[in-house]
């Protein structure tokens, strides 16, 4: 069975949600990984969940990157294994340099929690492989700093390497300023690294796996992970 590990930092608060969604709908083999842990090599996929690690004091994700587990995750990622950072997890991946760019406060300067639409603009990653190119999913966001920033050179690089995975859009998949909830450059909601095995995304797929909660579109992300891991094994 495929093993998922959910990292827990002091202040993580979507750790239980990720754990529950994976256990319920994806794989029975899921464990928490305490941030001081140095034993993560036996996992197949590492999930860095949302929350406010270290209170997000100083900057979102800034302090978490000095936890012992981050060095392990770096090696894990370099060996080609799958790492997904959701919300605060994405912010941590940016801070520790596994993904390029940085997060700024939402342009509204307010925390935003609501369902939005997301377009899958790169279905050629292990995290989107079970979705068709261009598929629109309905998924919640919940963040105060999800305004993705990257300088023009960096953006060009992202595009050249096809690293943009998700963009904010409307129900029909149109991408415009009106469908940008937080001011992100080019409506970017999720990116991967050059190798494609590390994904960061602001929306919360773990919050929309159970249809009782209003949408099960988030399952597609986890099913893609499952599919690509099964294929590679």
């Amino acid at each position: 069975m495929l093993r998922f590990g959910v990292v827990v930092f002091p202040g993580s608060n979507c750790d239980h949600d990720c754990f529950y969604a994976i256990k319920q709908f994806v794989s029975k083999d899921v464990e928490f990984i305490w941030h001081k842990s140095r034993e993560i090599h036996e996992f197949d996929c590492i999930v860095i969940p949302g929350g406010f690690s270290y209170g997000d004091y100083l900057r979102t994700g800034a302090i978490a990157r000095f936890s012992p587990v981050i060095g392990q995750i770096r090696e894990f990622a370099e060996s080609g294994k799958l790492v997904i950072g959701i919300c605060n997890g994405f912010q941590i991946l940016l801070e520790c340099g596994l993904l390029p760019g940085a997060m700024l406060r939402n342009t509204s300067l307010r925390f935003i929690c609501k369902y939005i639409y997301l377009k899958t603009v790169n279905s050629d990653t292990p995290f989107t492989s079970s979705m068709e190119q261009g598929r629109v999913i309905r998924i919640p966001i919940a963040h105060g700093e999800g305004n993705y920033y990257i300088d023009p050179d960096g953006l060009a690089e992202l595009k050249r390497n096809n690293q943009i995975v998700f963009q904010y859009c409307d129900a029909n998949g149109n991408i415009s300023d009106n469908t940008n909830p937080n001011g992100s450059v080019e409506n970017i909601a999720g990116i991967c690294n050059k190798a494609g095995n590390v994904l960061g995304m602001m929306p919360h797929p773990e919050r929309c796996c159970d249809p009782r909660l209003g949408s099960s579109d988030g399952l597609a992300v986890f099913q893609s992970i499952l599919k690509s891991l099964t294929v590679s094994q």
């Binding site: 700024l104 406060r105 342009t107 300067l109 920033y149 300088d151 001011g183």
Partner: peptide
């Protein structure tokens, strides 16, 4: 501070 090239929504609001 934020770099000059980076939008500062807080500063703008003030």
């Amino acid at each position: 501070t934020l770099k000059p090239s980076v939008l500062d929504p807080q500063g703008n609001t003030v």
